[in-house]
């Protein structure tokens, strides 16, 4: 139990928790329908895709890098997977779709990792370039059409639910099974980060890269692993997204890079590396999903969404800084 609490201490989660609580109070005050199950389930459902991508991005941020190409990786992996499976007229279990997408995403991620690690190029520049590259490659070589005919087993997945509750007005509120996938991956990443030498090596490299080099850590292998995993996560997220919207849309997901980045940063991951945790990221994702899906219900125009997300990011990164300022004595008085 103490170990599980230990995860909570990793991240400055209190700000996110307080924000989520405050939003709930505000939304309920404006529209009591907000608290009802259909809407709560919808929030969780909309956090699945962002959440899976956020887990991958979390690894990259902790290692001291940044990745903006994961949306392109997600769409390219998803779209290729659907094409491949449709091509062979596949009717088996959906796990194969996840595996193929994870493999394609992993390869694309390894390409990122190789460019960054072997050529020692700045991560933002590399992934900005590959974002456009992957996108262009897909639209030019693979296709631009929205595919409505998904492989047979993706449709049942789209309809699978964990629980289904009848609502008073005769409808049905269902919690999508994809949330289990998110929780499962989150636990896996948490274990990876906290209890494996690979995970601690990611923190070490993000905390002091030079020291990691001198200590003989295999920085290249770790970085390749990190970007490969981030790519695989993006691939899986892409397939989940296709199943949820019941189509392979080449224009989905793209454009959500900054929302995902915001979720991870609000969740306490440092853009400078070495800091961040799964629980914080998870809460950050919930906060972003809450803002994205609930402002309308609360009668706030959608145009305000970005403004809110921006304010939360600002507050989220300012609070830890303010705390440091208040506890720190004047640096000039320290000899």
């Amino acid at each position: 139990m103490k170990r599980i609490l230990g995860i909570a201490q990793d991240a400055p989660s209190s700000f996110v928790l307080v924000s989520i609580g405050a939003l709930y109070v505000a939304f309920i005050a404006r529209n009591s329908a907000f608290i009802e199950l259909p809407h709560q389930f919808a929030i969780l459902r909309s956090s699945i895709v962002i959440g899976i991508m956020a887990l991958g991005l979390l690894l990259v941020l902790i290692s001291g890098g940044i990745d903006v190409s994961f949306t392109a990786v997600a769409v390219l992996s998803m779209y290729s997977t659907v094409q491949i499976l449709n091509g062979v007229d596949y009717g088996g279990p959906i796990v194969v779709a996840f595996l193929i997408a994870a493999a394609i995403g992993g390869l694309l991620g390894l390409l990122n990792g190789a460019l960054i690690s072997l050529l020692r190029l700045p991560t933002l520049i590399v992934t900005l370039a590959t974002l456009t590259l992957f996108r262009g490659f897909m639209l030019f070589f693979i296709g631009t059409d929205r595919i409505r005919e998904l492989p047979a087993q993706m449709k049942p997945f789209a309809r699978s639910t964990i629980v289904s509750v009848a609502t008073p007005n005769g409808g049905k509120a269902s919690l999508h099974v994809g949330i289990l996938l998110l929780v499962g991956l989150a636990l896996a990443v948490a274990v990876l980060l906290r209890w494996t030498p690979f995970g601690r090596a990611i923190y070490a490299i993000g905390g002091n890269r030079q020291a990691a080099e001198r200590a003989g850590l295999p920085i290249r292998r770790v970085e390749l692993g990190v970007y490969g995993l981030a790519g695989s996560m993006a691939g899986i997220a892409g397939v989940v997204d296709a199943a949820l919207i019941r189509a392979a849309d080449p224009f989905t997901i793209v454009g959500t890079e900054l929302d995902v980045l915001a979720a991870v940063v609000i969740g306490g991951a440092a853009i400078t590396g070495g800091r961040g945790g799964v629980l914080g990221t998870f809460l950050g994702v919930i906060l972003i999903a809450l803002v994205d899906s609930s402002l309308v219900l609360a009668g706030i125009p959608t145009e305000w969404q970005k403004l809110f997300v921006g304010l939360f990011i600002l507050a989220g990164v300012m609070l830890p800084a303010l705390r440091t300022w208040s506890t720190r004595t004047d640096p000039r008085t320290i000899e």
């Binding site: 494996t196 030498p197 690979f198 601690r200 090596a201 923190y203 070490a204 993000g206 905390g207 002091n208 030079q210 020291a211 990691a212 001198r214 200590a215 003989g216 850590l217 295999p218 292998r221 770790v222 070495g274 800091r275």
Partner: peptide
């Protein structure tokens, strides 16, 4: 500059360098 990892614990800084380096799960 000591080449320590400021974000890790004392134990993680001291003990597991070889193990972290080999990436073997343990």
């Amino acid at each position: 500059d000591l080449a320590l990892f400021p974000n890790l614990t004392v134990a993680e800084n001291i003990a597991p360098c070889e193990r972290t380096a080999s990436l073997t799960p343990h």
